[in-house]
Nucleic acid binder design. Sequence first.
DNA 1: TAGTGGTCTAGACCACTTT
DNA 2: AAGTGGTCTAGACCACTAG
Lengths: 232, 232
Amino acid sequence: MTKYETVANSLADRINNHEFNETKKIPTEDQLMEEYNVSRNTVRNAIKILTKLGLLYPVQGSGMFIRESRKCDTVFLSGTRGITKDHPGNKLTNKCLSVEIVEADDNLAQIMLCEIGTPIYYIERLRIVDDIPYAIEYTYYNKNIIPYLDKEIIESSIFRYIKEDLKIPFGFSDKYISARKLTDQESQLLELEKNDPAIIIEDDIYLTNGTLFNSSQIVYNYKLAHFFMTVE
Amino acid sequence: MTKYETVANSLADRINNHEFNETKKIPTEDQLMEEYNVSRNTVRNAIKILTKLGLLYPVQGSGMFIRESRKCDTVFLSGTRGITKDHPGNKLTNKCLSVEIVEADDNLAQIMLCEIGTPIYYIERLRIVDDIPYAIEYTYYNKNIIPYLDKEIIESSIFRYIKEDLKIPFGFSDKYISARKLTDQESQLLELEKNDPAIIIEDDIYLTNGTLFNSSQIVYNYKLAHFFMTVE
DNA sequence: TAGTGGTCTAGACCACTTT
DNA sequence: AAGTGGTCTAGACCACTAG
C-alpha cells in the first residue's frame, strides 16, 4: 500500500465517521502534510482518489468540501469493484446457466482482440440479489489468461478468484452502455415481461499490459439496476 | 491555457495524425520533458488527461501506449462536453416543447438543492440529430444562476450560451443511469412505440463552488444512443 | 542491466476566496 | 492581506519490463 493510499483510506474513514461534519471540509493540504507527515504531492494524490470517488470536490482558494452522499442503491460505475461490493448487506448468488470452451472464430477474435483459434471460455450466469433476479451476464474469457474455471468458481465469485487466487493485475476497463428489449428467454430468467426494457453494459476488461482478457455483456433488470458516476 | 493542457493538446493532435503508428507508443516522459521543455510533473499532468480520455494506457516499465479507438457512434460519458461535440459532422437541432418559470416547492427544492421558493426554469426540449429524434430532455435551471433563457437560446445551444456568453464555470457533474419504458407521449415524440425501452440519464451539474445549477433528465432513443466510458 | 513509469520530497509562484 | 488550492520546477529512489 502506498503512502497516498494510506492517507486516502484514513481520510475516507474520517469522512465516514463524520469527523468533519461541522465545517463540511477536510483539513487544508498544509495541515494534512503536517498530520500525516508527508509531502504535498502525496496529500494531493490521496485527495485525487477521494475526488474520483465522488466524496470531495475542490473549491480553489477555499478548501476541499465533502459532498452530499449520492442516491442510495446505485452502482458506482467508475470503478471495477465487482457487484459484491456494490451491494453490501445483500445476499448475492449466481446461477451458472452455461459453460463452454470455444475456439475464437473471425468474429469472436475481433471481440476478444486475439488470434483466430484462441481458446475462449463462454459463460452465462444469472446474478441474483436477495432472491430477486438482478442480471444476466454473457462473458468471454481468454483461456490463455484464465486457464481454469468451473461451476463452483462461477457460482461464487469469478472476480474474487481472478483477483485473489490468480492474482491477475487488472488494468483498465471500457464500458459501453445502451438499452434494448429483453428477449423471451431473458424475460423469463429475470421474471419480467417479454419486450420489457433492459439496460445493457458491455464491460471490456484489460490487464495492466493492455491485453483484453474479459468481455462481458450484462443485461440488467431495469427495475433494480441504477448506476451512478461522477465526472471531472 | 496551462502548460500541461498545451502539451496534452499537442500530443492528442500528434496521436490523431498517426505520428506514433509504428511504435504504438508516445515518447517517454524524459523525451517529452526535453521536447516541450517542461518538468516531469507537467508531462505527467498532460498524460493523465489523455489517459482519462481513453487515448492512452500506461505500462509501467515499458511506456505509454496508444489505445485502439473505441467503437464508433458512441457518446463519451466521462466529460461534460455537450451533445454537439459528440456528433461531429451531424446536423443538430433542438425543438423547444415547453418553457416555464416555477417556484421551487418542497420536492423541487430537494432536487435542486435550493431554498423553497427559489425561481426555477423548467424546460422541455426535443433533440434531433440528422432529422431523427434523438432524445427528450427535461431540465431545471436555477434562475438565480441562469437569470435569462429564451426560445432562441433553447433551440440553439444552452450549453454554449452558459459557457461562452455567461462564462459560468462548470465544476463537476453527477450522472445517474437507468432504463424504463417510454410513455405514450415520449414514444410519439421519438417516433418509437409506446412501452419501448428508453435509456435515461439524469445529469446534475455543479458550479466550481459546489452549487447545483442544472438538473436534467434525458430520455434517449434506444436505437440511436450508445454511451462509452473508460475506467481507471 | 538499462529503460521507463510510479512514488515521494522540497520549494516556488499563481489564481481565487475570504476576511 | 491572509489563506487555500492549482501549476510548475528539480531531483531522488522504487517497481516493473525488456533485451
